[in-house]
């Protein structure tokens, strides 16, 4: 979608400007904190580190698969591989599970039900839904 860039974007030197909207970052931070206040200092730093995180994740996923070869397309499965390989990205495993076939998923469900619910987390339920949708899409 859209035209490929003829030139790679130039790396910006660190400045006080951010690519990402601070107000939205604050909203996300507050939603995960039951209590506590966020200083502008922290908000700014979190926004900067989020930018670093995006660059690191996208860069690692692309490099892992293609090295420095230009013109390739970064896809979900490349991100999924990076997440599964790195220990400090374990918190993303539920967000970026590796894709499996529908019959494997159904078998997992069957085993889960027979074994009783080991995981009572709502997150797991959400994951099931996401995986189901994902598999349906891949089959089409």
């Amino acid at each position: 979608m859209g035209e490929p860039r003829s030139q790679p974007p130039v790396e910006r030197p660190p400045t006080a400007e951010t690519f990402l909207p601070l107000s939205r970052v604050r909203t996300i931070m507050k939603s995960s904190m039951d209590t506590g206040l966020i200083t502008n200092e922290v908000l700014f730093l979190m926004t900067k580190c989020t930018e670093l995180f995006v660059r690191h994740l996208a860069g690692a996923a692309y490099t892992e698969e293609f090295g420095q070869r230009p013109g390739e397309a970064l896809k979900y499965e490349h991100l999924s591989q990076v997440v599964n390989k790195n220990k400090n990205l374990e918190f993303l495993l539920q967000i970026v599970p590796q894709k499996i076939r529908v019959h494997q998923f159904q078998e997992m469900l069957r085993l889960n039900r027979s074994a009783g619910s080991d995981d009572d987390d709502d997150d797991d339920d959400d994951d099931d839904e996401e995986e189901s949708e994902s598999e349906s899409e891949s089959d089409e």
Partner: peptide
């Protein structure tokens, strides 16, 4: 925009 920085020239990013 941020993702494009580490991706080599003409690299694409799937939806």
């Amino acid at each position: 925009k941020i993702m494009k920085v580490p991706v080599p020239q003409n690299g694409k990013i799937a939806k």
